[in-house]
Design a protein around this nucleic acid. Structure first.
Lengths: 341, 341
DNA sequence: CTGAAAGCGCTAACAC
DNA sequence: GTGTTAGCGCTTTCAG
């Protein structure tokens, strides 16, 4: 019942071979080390029969590898991150890796603590949605030859592998779509986070607006307030103070949620006249009434690319090779962004 | 830059003390072991100055403790599990534990693999949303004196600690609420999973229906089809074949999503006449039109109780003490379940 | 082809 | 009060 007492040594003793032999066989190096087929079979059968699995901690101490990967996100309970997590998880396990998820709240200190902690845990690699100020810490990991892949955003001046999407183009496309559908006063609601993905989305919007000769209206909500009453109030004010607004483009899914909530609470009829588009898709937007048009990030591809890069980094043990992937987001046109009558 | 080369031994050498002394101080046993304040300070200052953190793998091998907890859920990308994960994560880290999340897809083999894997990783404890057939495996963990807390469901014949909610009562209350609002033909849509939480929800519904002298209509969708086209078709059929239905009670959040999607696609006007209530709340239901009434599980309390129990188990190192908690779900009445005109 | 033995870095019993 | 040292369970070099 208590299998934890069985050691590799016990197996060796039981089968009258040395621990070395058992270890080789367990690690699939039997052939390579020219151990007789007979012995290999004997060991494999026995190991199988008692369902032996070596102690991973001891293995890690000896090899320096833990077969653990860290996936650090802003908030693991956010749909976008949770979905990617789920995809990464499957790939990782199929390759013999475990995944430690953690949430950094987009906060530098917390990110640093976590990186520090996991470094001492000797994790094999990091997949990180970085907060704004941890460039140095990422740099350090790479210097120490620990595989790192960034996601969703990156530091332009830092040579790292990353997987991002074409925020600028996608944002421009979405804005243009609104313009083409007859909207003339389009607001852009975003956070005050000065990270590249947000800035690119803003730029894409502004570019499209400028090209159409329209007036841009931007609301930046402090990151801390995005999910609070205060955030909703700010959105609400925007509409009361700018009666001419006929469409809005939200830069992230949680802002859209706040926005929809505000509309429902304070001005329900607005939902039928306002053009709406959001960055990041989710189930809610698909089945909402009206259905909400969205710039959908290719979650599956993102997860797959992240793990691809990570597994290559792990295999080649060459942290300096860079792979930088920019995926295309898909504009999913639903009812909320179509021309209103 | 490369801090990983510094060992506890190096610190001892540098400061002219023994490794024992350093180890004691690092583990906060300085006072207890009567090491002079002066030496303690010297060590602490130095350790601080070079930002030394001991190798956790070596520590784990030696102590048998990894300070890692596993949280195994059906699907980490599901809102319900992701939210609890986020709550647990915070508590765990504040107590010096890390959390490994994993998804078992409510599948026994996968659960077993995962349990096996993590046992060999020597994790300190398991918080598990168990699939139906892993009673034996859970039992084994407990026999091996590994702390286990179950969540969302449990095995009635198995003595384990767990945190669940009052499914039967909550379900009965929700059904009664529909009845009180004039609905006479209420369907119950659930999965074919024969686990206690689902059965209790079904029983609660049937009890309320029976007491009111109404007719029960139950649709059980195979678990594998719940998120697919097939599941939506089954729901759709239910309504075409039972024209008299005037309300529906979904037993989980993902079924509700499928249901809302079906309604939107095939019969949009239904949304305004049908009474709707769902088990499990989420943001979508709050801001949907009409807003969807929900039986909300107290996510925060669940997370907190889980960690409370786990931390106690860990502290007392007594796996046999049981703590079984049943929390109350809250019926949140919104527009979808109110009397229609 | 197989076995002995030296660690991986840390903890803690024991000795002084 | 502080230092010596024997492991925790495994991998892998080197000798035979």
């Amino acid at each position: 019942m208590n299998q934890k007492k069985i050691l590799l040594k016990d197996i060796a003793k039981k089968l009258n071979v040395s621990t070395t032999t058992v270890s080789f066989v367990l690690n699939g190096k039997g052939k390579e080390k020219k151990i007789s087929d007979e012995v290999i079979k004997k060991i494999e059968d026995y190991v199988e029969s008692i369902n032996f699995r070596p102690n991973l901690v001891a293995q890690s101490l000896r090899t320096g590898k833990t077969k653990i990967l860290v996936f650090m996100v802003e908030d693991i309970s956010n749909y976008f991150f949770a979905k990617i997590a789920r995809i990464i998880e499957d790939i990782a396990y199929s390759k013999g890796y475990k995944i430690l998820f953690c949430s950094n709240e987009n906060n530098d200190d917390r990110s640093r603590d976590l990186i520090n902690l996991f470094s001492k845990l000797q994790v094999d690699g990091f997949i990180i949605i970085p907060s704004a100020g941890i460039k140095k810490d990422i740099e350090n990991l790479i210097k120490n030859n620990i595989p790192v892949v960034l996601c969703d955003r990156h530091f332009p001046q830092l040579k790292t592998s990353y997987v991002v999407i074409n925020n600028y183009e996608a944002s421009k496309e979405a804005t243009t779509h609104l313009i083409n559908n007859g909207f003339k006063n389009i607001a852009f609601i975003t956070t005050d986070v000065r990270q590249i993905q947000m800035l690119d989305r803003l730029k894409g919007y502004e570019k499209a607006i400028a090209e159409a000769g329209l007036k841009s209206t931007v609301l930046q909500i402090p990151f801390a307030d995005t999910n609070s009453e205060k955030g909703r109030d700010m959105i609400s004010c925007l509409f009361t103070e700018n009666k001419e607004l006929d469409a809005v483009f939200f830069s992230t899914n949680y802002l859209t949620q706040s926005g929809l909530e505000m509309i429902k609470e304070t001005n329900p009829s607005l939902i039928n006249t306002l053009g709406i588009i959001t960055f990041d898709d989710n189930d809610l937007f698909r089945i909402y009434s009206p259905s909400i048009s969205a710039v959908a990030q290719p979650l599956h591809q993102i997860g797959q690319e992240l793990m691809n890069i990570m597994l290559n980094l792990l295999k080649d043990n060459n942290t300096n090779q860079l792979k930088q992937v920019t995926l295309k987001a898909n504009l999913i046109i639903r009812n909320s962004s179509l021309r209103k009558n």
